[in-house]
Computed example of a mutant assay.
Amino acid sequence: MTSALLKQRRHKDYGFHLEYRTRWSDNDMYDHMNNSVYSFLFDSIINAYLIERCRLHPPTSPQIGLVIRSNADYFRPVGFPSIVDLGLRVNKLGKSSVTYEVGVFERGDEKISAVGGYTHVFVERETNRPAATGMPEEIRRGLEKISLDEKPKL
Rank of each mutant, 00 (worst) to 15 (best):
K151Q: 15
I46P: 00
I64N: 11
D85Y: 00
G108W: 04
I46E: 13
D109M: 03
F122N: 11
S97V: 01
L86A: 05
R9S: 13
L66K: 02
N47W: 05
Q8N: 04
R23K: 15
T99I: 11
Y38P: 03
R129D: 01
V84Q: 00
D43W: 01
L93I: 11
T119G: 06
F16W: 08
R69T: 03
T60G: 03
A4Y: 07
L56T: 12
F122E: 10
V78R: 10
S39G: 08
M135Q: 01
I146E: 04
G142W: 02
N91W: 01
A131D: 15
D26W: 09
V78Y: 02
I51Q: 08
F16K: 09
S82V: 05
S96E: 12
V115G: 02
A48V: 11
G87L: 08
E150M: 06
R107L: 00
L18A: 10
D28V: 13
M1D: 06
F40P: 00
A4S: 12
V123R: 03
D85R: 13
A4Q: 11
E126M: 09
P136D: 07
A114W: 04
L50Y: 01
L86E: 05
E137N: 10
E101V: 01
R10N: 05
P58L: 01
D109N: 13
I64G: 13
R129K: 14
P81V: 00
R53Y: 01
K95A: 14
A132P: 05
D109I: 08
S36K: 06
K111N: 10
V98K: 05
A48R: 14
I68F: 10
S70C: 08
